[in-house]
Design a protein around this nucleic acid. Structure first.
Lengths: 191, 191, 191, 191
DNA sequence: TATGAATGAGTCTTCATTCAT
DNA sequence: AATGAATGAAGACTCATTCAT
């Protein structure tokens, strides 16, 4: 039955997400995922044919999540929304052992994608749009000063990406991240 | 003989660098390196015991290279030095197929280092110092406006790191990099 | 219901025949046959327990077909009947991609049968009888010269078998088959 | 060392020949051959990459053997040589459990070869030439009567092939083979 | 009867690593 | 110091067959 089948598929995806979060992408074998899910060696091939296709599914689902985890209040000030966004990002960057960032990087590297419709790119675009709108809103409300909101939004996202990857390569303390995010805010906000 | 031994070791390292640049770190096998260097199956173990230790040696050597590729003239203006630095970084980011960035990321991820004395971290520190001095110089010369040169330097480096990794995950055009670097310069330079 | 059950069984057999004709016997899996017939994974086991038993059923049905595909006229000359028989055999040998010969060979080999009541053997006997009678008829009518009709009939059948298998091992042109069959006819017929 | 390597390769080939003779081609796995040879699971891949390539090597070696197993005396009568040839063939056909015929058939079927340079075809051509010459010799010596030696030679070979394959499909007694071979001889020899 | 999801045994293949020479 | 043949552990994948529904 399609419904039950979907459930099982989701079970595998959820188990696999754990595995990928722990071990990244490159080092994960089908066996790892099989052992993490309640499925047999042969059974997993009924749903996925490789670790890559499982991870692709995870990314797809990831993309469907809203950019902002919390509620966005229409009447909220742009500064507050920005602070909220940055705080969420910081939290995620620091939760480096539990998130999918390393797996996502490794997946991108292994598959040498960077093609137009890859989910990581789409996610970036989506975040870029949201952030650009946020900045434009702040500018029109007189909260922010910014000549090129789109470029500024991209700048913030690339900085966050740099922090995210650096958390894994050189290690980052919360203080260091705060220092960087503070700069971002100071640059924008009219005091 | 120690000297001859060193030569052989360097031969392996040089061959391996090519392989890592092409295929990243995770996908490289001992066999790949053996085939690329002039050494036998068993012979390589006289010098290295894993792909990781070979890559570690490469990183060590990488770290010994000067931060600036070109000559730095004492009397050059800070703006020009900054522009030179950014131009070099851009070039390297765009040469993504030939540099060691993916291999380095994969190596860091696979070894979950981020320890205090890892070479990637040391390299970052080194660049941070150079860049901070550069900015301080620019400030004292009246070329730059900057309240916290060290934070600004880190900001630039994280942004570059973000661009570097994004070149592999979402793909970047030269124009997009230029747009980001322009922002960096405009922010600093007093027109 | 016995009748409906028989129908279903025949459905499987017919679908399987196609598969065996295309792929021989050894390379065919239950999955292949399941996909070719309108039956479920588990359902096929209600009728057959292996590809071998399906093929056995096909052979059984094959055996029930008349030796001569066309109509045999009582009053026809023995020469004409012989020519008709050889022509049919030639046609079948050349249609090597669509007939069951490879599958039959592979089935016999795999099951190392050659037992007394195997269907291939029965089929051979049947053809031997028909052909022997035909030759005897020709002899008594003064059309053929032959001292040992049974041995001659066997000789023709073995030759045809040799041509049939050679069509798959070394490849045969129509001309080569014609040349061989011509010899057979010349040997028998009194000019 | 090339020499020792060749020895090992030959060891594998010899062990594999046994296995193929026993089990045919289709049912033989790498594991079977590994267990029969003195080699490890991974080791066999240093020499061959599939059962097919091992069997191809066997066929190549087979082809290099002389068509006549025994000595051919220049001054021998054509009849005697023919009888010798047929006797050898009969012996081989009856030794059906120990020869490579089933494996060869299965190999040809599985690989759907029948291409111009397949070794089975070359072997056939070779035998055809030898047999044709033998018959021509007999004719010129006044021992044989034959209008078309090449066609007659082919006829004998196809008959033998028919007997060979029939030994596996319908089963053959020595008497039946003798009866067929007798016909061949009677047809040729001028009494 | 009929379904198709699930199982696990079996095979192929690659790879780091060892070891006799 | 150097070689490269050999090893066996580990992972990928397929397939016949079972079983709850």
């Amino acid at each position: 039955m399609g419904d039950k089948s979907e459930q099982k598929k989701q079970l595998i995806v959820d188990a696999a997400r754990q595995v990928f979060a722990e071990k990244g992408f490159a080092g994960v074998t089908m066996k790892d995922i099989i052992e993490a899910s309640q499925i047999s060696r042969g059974g997993i091939y009924l749903y996925f044919d490789s670790t890559a296709s499982i991870f692709a599914e995870i990314l797809k689902q990831e993309q469907e999540r809203p950019v902002f985890a919390g509620e966005i209040l229409e009447e909220a000030a742009a500064v507050d929304l920005l602070l909220l966004f940055l705080k969420e990002q910081k939290k995620d960057i620091l939760r480096k052992k539990e998130n999918l960032s390393v797996a996502t990087y490794e997946y991108c590297f292994a598959n040498r994608l960077a093609s137009l419709d890859n989910p990581v790119r789409r996610r970036f675009k989506e975040m870029l749009d949201v952030l650009t709108q946020l900045i434009e809103m702040g500018v029109s409300e007189g909260e922010f000063y910014c000549e090129d909101p789109a470029a500024e939004a991209a700048n913030i996202l690339y900085l966050l990406e740099g922090l995210r990857v650096s958390a894994h390569t050189i290690g980052l303390t919360e203080a260091k991240i705060d220092s960087q995010l503070l700069q971002v805010v100071q640059r924008l906000v009219i005091e």
